[in-house]
Amino acid sequence: MLLIACPWCGPRDETEFVNGGEAHIDRPTPAESVSDADWAAYLFFHDNPRGWLAERWVHAFGCRQWFNVERDTVTHEIRRVWRLGEPRA
């Protein structure tokens, strides 16, 4: 069971959080000039890496804040947590 350090509340069990998938996926705009392929890439085609992954979590049963986590998808080690708007590295 993961122990996730919410940047607002501190470390909590994973059961307080909801995972939101890969982080830093830009939503293409404006709608009128986004190709079908680019829209599909935004919706569906992500990295899904084996290893380090930057992902979004929300402290759903806590402060309800979204934030970013860098987690190894094999060992589940978490090496970094940062707030939205902060740079990735």
């Binding site: 069971m1 993961l2 994973e14 059961t15 995972n19 890969e22 992954l53 998808t73 094999v74 060992t75």
Partner: peptide, 13 residues
């Protein structure tokens, strides 16, 4: 298990 994983093991929740 409700997040991306390549670990072939599960967690208690």
């Amino acid at each position: 298990d409700p997040y991306a994983s390549y670990a072939q093991r599960g967690n208690p929740p």
